[in-house]
Design a protein around this nucleic acid. Structure first.
Length: 257
DNA sequence: ATGGTAGCTGGGCTA
């Protein structure tokens, strides 16, 4: 089974790239983040023409997540169950595909340490942890994939000293990330990349991509039986370098049967 | 410390 995750930063603006990418890579399930459009405006027909059904959880303007799948999806969970406002923003979607529980998230950015958006981000991760605890307690194989908006270690930032203790790198954010690992999930991207940086996001401004001034913000965390099945893995930097690309690169992984 | 870009929308806001 081939899985992928990609923060597309507007599904409508990115549609030509998404269609081309699906044809090139033929994933069974692609998790998307930052759809930035209402569910009724998701370009379903164009994706269906390639054999993919879209299951969105999104709203107009900002945020939103989806699964684009050529496998049947079951047990669809839109949003973190019981999350009160403002935690009911469309940032989480859970489905079962090929016997695996897939959870995609678009974590709050946080903007700046010490601000209300940052406190919101940390509180949102508490809810995510609780949700994953429940999923794991059910004994399912789980894959969490998406934009967590956290660079877990200094290797994951192009200039860790400049961005020390800032948004995306602050100790409480990194503690939130560690909490997910402590649930028993494994960091598939890091395990597949060794000590090498595996940046997934490069600021659009200036020449940040060309000079590889990037960050690792997109993640795939999996339960050990799934992590052991990872047969191939790639961060598609070439896609990030194409005209009309998102500011995030897609991540692709193959699971052996 | 700041600028640089892109996409939501229809003047800023978010990233």
């Amino acid at each position: 089974m081939r899985l992928a995750t990609w923060n597309v930063n507007s599904i409508r603006a990115r549609l030509p790239r998404v269609l081309a990418w699906l044809q090139d890579w033929q994933p069974d399930v692609l998790a998307l983040q930052e759809l930035r459009c209402a569910e009724r405006d998701v370009p379903r027909r164009e994706l269906a023409a390639l054999g993919y059904e879209v299951t969105p959880h999104s709203q107009s303007g900002s945020g939103g997540v989806a699964f684009v799948s050529r496998l049947p999806l079951e047990s669809i969970q839109r949003g973190i169950p019981g999350a009160p406002p403002p935690f009911d923003e469309p940032r989480m979607l859970g489905v079962t595909a090929g016997g695996v529980r897939l959870v995609t998230v678009y974590a709050p950015n946080g903007r700046k340490v010490g601000t209300q958006p940052h406190r919101f981000k940390l509180a949102w991760f508490e809810l995510l942890r609780t949700l994953l605890e429940t999923e794991l307690a059910n004994g399912h194989d789980v894959v969490l994939l998406g934009d967590l908006n956290i660079a877990p270690t200094d290797v994951d930032v192009w200039d860790p000293h400049r961005y020390r203790r800032r948004n995306l790198t602050s100790p409480p954010e990194r503690a939130s990330y560690q909490t997910l690992l402590e649930l028993g999930l494994r960091d598939v991207v890091r395990e597949s990349s060794g000590d090498a940086p595996a940046f997934t996001w490069w600021n659009r401004r200036s020449d940040f991509f060309e000079t590889n001034r990037g960050w690792r913000l997109d993640h795939v965390l999996a339960t050990p039986p799934i992590a052991d099945r990872v047969a191939a893995f790639l961060v598609d930097r070439d896609e990030r370098g194409t005209d009309g690309s998102s500011d995030h690169a897609p991540i692709v992984l193959d699971l052996s049967p």
